[in-house]
C-alpha cells in the first residue's frame, strides 16, 4: 500500500513552525516511515509545478503554517487546499494571525514607508517602492500583491483542524499526525489541544489567593519575578485566564507569563476582549482617578491582549 502523502507549507511566518517539525528529532523517523513528504520548501527541493502536477485530493494532509499577507500565499494555499484531503492550520499565525497579525493595527502604506524609507538603515532618496508590475524591454516583472490586512488561514480556505502554538509543541504534533494516520479524527474544525484555560493546568494556580487584587501593574523587565506566585498576583499581565491549555506551560516554567499563543478556548471568540474583561475586574480600586492611573500604566493594551489573535477578533484590524 502506498504511504499517505503529506505536504508542509509556510506563508507569513518566522520559520519557527518548520523548526518545530525538525524538533521532532528521532520521532520524525516514525513520521517519515509512515508517510511520504511530497512538498516542504524549507527542507526538500520540490517546486510549485510539482504540486500543480498532482491530481486534486492526492495529498492526504497539508500542514500550512503562517498567516496570509500576500496574494502569492493565497494562491499557494488555495492550490494546496485543492490537492489535499485535509488541511491543518499549523501554529498561531495560521490559526489566529499570530505576531504578523499585529500589523493589522497599522496600514499597508505605513508599513511600506517604514520598511522602504524611514528605517534608520535605509537610504531611499528617490522614494522607490515595490510595485506589482514593472515593464522593461518587453518583459513583465511581477511581485505578489501585499494585502491591506493579515488574515488567518480560514479566511481564505476551509480548514479541517488547527494545531495551536508558537510553535506547536512536539507532543501535540505527534498526537495529531498519529490521529490522522489512524483515522481517529475529532470533529472537523477542532483545535487539537485541550479545551480548557491555561490556569487550570498551571502549577502556580494552587498557591493563588482566593481573590486576586491588583494594586500596581508591572512589566516583566521592571520587577524581579517570583518563580512560585501567580503572575497576576504579582501585577504582571499573564493571558492564562483567556488562553487555551495544552502548551505544556513552557513559558510559565521559564518564569515568563503567558502571552496567549494558543488562542482562546472554543467558548470564546474574542481573546483580547475576554482577557480585558477578567483583568480589568481584578484592579483593586473603585476610584475613577485611580483606575485611570492604573490603566495608563498598560502601554499597549491592544498589542498585549491580542498579541496573537487580532485578525480573528471581532474587529480584526484598526480603522
Amino acid at each position: 500500500m502506498p504511504k499517505p502523502k503529506v505536504a508542509f507549507y509556510w506563508n507569513a511566518s518566522c520559520g519557527g513552525c518548520e523548526e518545530a517539525v525538525v524538533d521532532l528529532n528521532e520521532k520524525i523517523l516514525d513520521v517519515v516511515a509512515a508517510v511520504d513528504i511530497v512538498f516542504w520548501p524549507v527542507a526538500l527541493d520540490f517546486k510549485r509545478k510539482d504540486v500543480e502536477a498532482m491530481p486534486d485530493g492526492s495529498i492526504a494532509v497539508s500542514f500550512i503554517n503562517g498567516a496570509i499577507r500576500l496574494s502569492e500565499q493565497q494562491e499557494m494555499t488555495e492550490m494546496l487546499r485543492r490537492k489535499s484531503g485535509l488541511v491543518v492550520a499549523f501554529g498561531s499565525c495560521a490559526h489566529l494571525g499570530g505576531i504578523p497579525g499585529l500589523a493589522n493595527f497599522t496600514t499597508k502604506e505605513k508599513i511600506f514607508q517604514r520598511a522602504y524609507q524611514l528605517s534608520p538603515s535605509t537610504m531611499n532618496s528617490e522614494g522607490t517602492y515595490p510595485i506589482e508590475l514593472y515593464q522593461s524591454d518587453g518583459h513583465d516583472l511581477t511581485l505578489p500583491r501585499f494585502f491591506d490586512q493579515v488574515l488567518p488561514l480560514d479566511r481564505i480556505i476551509d480548514v479541517d483542524y488547527y494545531l495551536p502554538g508558537c510553535p506547536p509543541p512536539v507532543d501535540l504534533i505527534v498526537a495529531a499526525v498519529m490521529a490522522i494516520l489512524k483515522g481517529e479524527l475529532p470533529p472537523k474544525g477542532a483545535v487539537l489541544s485541550p479545551n480548557k484555560a491555561l490556569c487550570e493546568s498551571c502549577e502556580r494556580n494552587a498557591a493563588k489567593p482566593e481573590k486576586l487584587a491588583i494594586k500596581e501593574i508591572k512589566r516583566v523587565h521592571q520587577t524581579e519575578l517570583d518563580a512560585e506566585k501567580c503572575f497576576l498576583e504579582q501585577g504582571i499581565v499573564c493571558l492564562g485566564p483567556a488562553t487555551r491549555s495544552g502548551c505544556g506551560e513552557r513559558c510559565i516554567s521559564a518564569n515568563m507569563p503567558c502571552r496567549g499563543c494558543f488562542g482562546p478556548t472554543d467558548q470564546v471568540k474574542d481573546q483580547g476582549a475576554k482577557f480585558l474583561s477578567s483583568f480589568a475586574s481584578l484592579l483593586d480600586t473603585n476610584d475613577e482617578t485611580e483606575i485611570q492611573k492604573l490603566v495608563d500604566t498598560i502601554v499597549d493594551p491592544a498589542g498585549t491582549f491580542y498579541r496573537f489573535s487580532a485578525p480573528v477578533s471581532y474587529l480584526r484590524h484598526s480603522k
Partner: peptide, 23 residues
C-alpha cells in the same frame, strides 16, 4: 454592590484599547 465599579474599570481600559483600533 460592586457591579458598576467593575463596569467602570472595564470601560476605562476598553476605551483605551478601542482608541488603538481607531474607534
Amino acid at each position: 454592590q460592586e457591579g458598576n465599579y467593575k463596569a467602570l474599570r472595564r470601560y476605562t481600559m476598553l476605551k483605551k484599547m478601542l482608541k488603538q483600533f481607531g474607534i
